[in-house]
Amino acid sequence: MPVLVSGGARGMGAAIAREVIEQGGQVVLADVLEKEGQDLADSLGSAASFIHLDVTQETSWERAVSHAQDRFGQLGGLVNNAGILLEGRVETTTPEQWQRTIAVNQLGVFLGMKAAVKAMRSAGGGSIVNISSTAGMTGFTDCFAYVASKWAVRGMTKAAALELAQYGIRVNSVHPGDTMTDMIAGAVASSGAVTTHDQIPLGRYALPSDISKLVLFLLSAESSYISGAEHVIDGAVTAGTPAH
């Protein structure tokens, strides 16, 4: 099943792309990071391809989906993984920071789903996995816009799951806790505003490969009756948080 992964050049997206290839699939890595994305695609072989993608632009998404169809014949899976974290509290976040965060993390997911629907309908169905966060399950300080965007991803996932079920398209969200990616490493370096190991019941941060295995399950036929659900993978950090 050909899968399109946004933000696929590094971090969690790269781990998902590698997992797709290891499981015998085909992957289109889509990212603004052209050299990193192309180098990764080249290293993964003929079952991988790279295309430049600005997730905030509808025409860019349309080109990426068409590229997947041209290269691999159809599109069966989409992973909306691209995201940014701009730190700021409610009283310090600027309108520009807010708009940039919403454009990438929320608008980008919407445009990705919209672009994929026609291709998945023609393929007879498909699976969309939207990468949210534990910040889409509860509140966090110092990342006001990010929290808002990740709650939106959770809601959009549920609405899309209801609308697209008739076409055999499943939609789920994945909510990782702190995962050792460049984005989290940057947050640690700038302010240390992440969960520490002693605050995680399982005693460690997630690895990108931990997340990729869950994503591959949700993309696969093994999860054929799972749709509209949020899947938390955080080492039990939010296990004691009341349900919303």
Rank of each mutant, 00 (worst) to 15 (best):
G13C: 06
E230V: 12
L40G: 13
V147P: 03
L4P: 13
T94P: 00
L107V: 07
V194Y: 13
V237C: 03
G235P: 00
S191V: 00
R121A: 14
Q97N: 07
E163K: 13
A48D: 07
D142I: 08
V232C: 12
A14W: 06
G168H: 06
G77P: 00
T157C: 10
L85S: 11
Q38Y: 05
A135R: 10
I200A: 11
F72I: 03
V171K: 07
A239E: 10
S224C: 10
I102N: 06
S224E: 14
S132C: 13
A152M: 01
R63M: 01
S132G: 13
V3A: 11
G203C: 04
R100V: 08
G240M: 15
T157F: 08
P242L: 15
I16V: 15
A17S: 14
L162K: 15
P242W: 14
P242E: 14
T138Q: 15
A41C: 04
I184C: 03
M180Y: 09
H52Y: 14
E163F: 05
G77S: 01
H244N: 11
S46N: 14
G125H: 07
Y146V: 12
S6C: 06
T238G: 07
G177A: 11
N105W: 01
P242M: 14
G7K: 01
V65W: 08
H175G: 11
I21P: 11
L218Y: 07
T181R: 02
Q199V: 13
T196P: 00
G203Y: 05
E19V: 03
A119P: 10
D70P: 00
I16Y: 09
Q99E: 09
I128S: 12
A116E: 05
V65E: 04
E58V: 05
D54G: 06
K118F: 08
G24T: 11
S127A: 15
G192E: 12
V129K: 13
P208R: 02
G235Y: 01
A159Q: 09
A82D: 00
E91W: 09
L214E: 05
G8Y: 00
K213F: 06
L75Y: 03
A30L: 08
S190Q: 01
S227G: 08
Q69N: 10
F72H: 01
L164R: 14
G136I: 03
P176Q: 09
R63V: 00
R154C: 13
L4G: 11
R121C: 10
T138P: 02
L86T: 08
M183P: 04
V32P: 01
G37K: 11
V171E: 08
A229T: 15
M183D: 07
T196H: 12
F72M: 05
A189V: 07
G155C: 04
P2A: 00
L164C: 12
A17Y: 02
L85E: 09
Y167A: 12
R100W: 00
S149M: 13
D42V: 09
I233S: 08
L111Q: 09
L162N: 14
A161Y: 11
W151Y: 15
F217R: 10
K150Q: 11
P95T: 04
T138M: 15
L44H: 02
G45S: 06
L164F: 14
T92Q: 13
M180C: 04
R10Y: 00
G203E: 05
K150H: 10
C143N: 07
P2I: 00
L53N: 06
V194C: 10
G126Y: 03
D31A: 09
A17P: 08
Q166P: 01
V104M: 02
P95M: 04
Q199M: 15
S223N: 06
V20L: 10
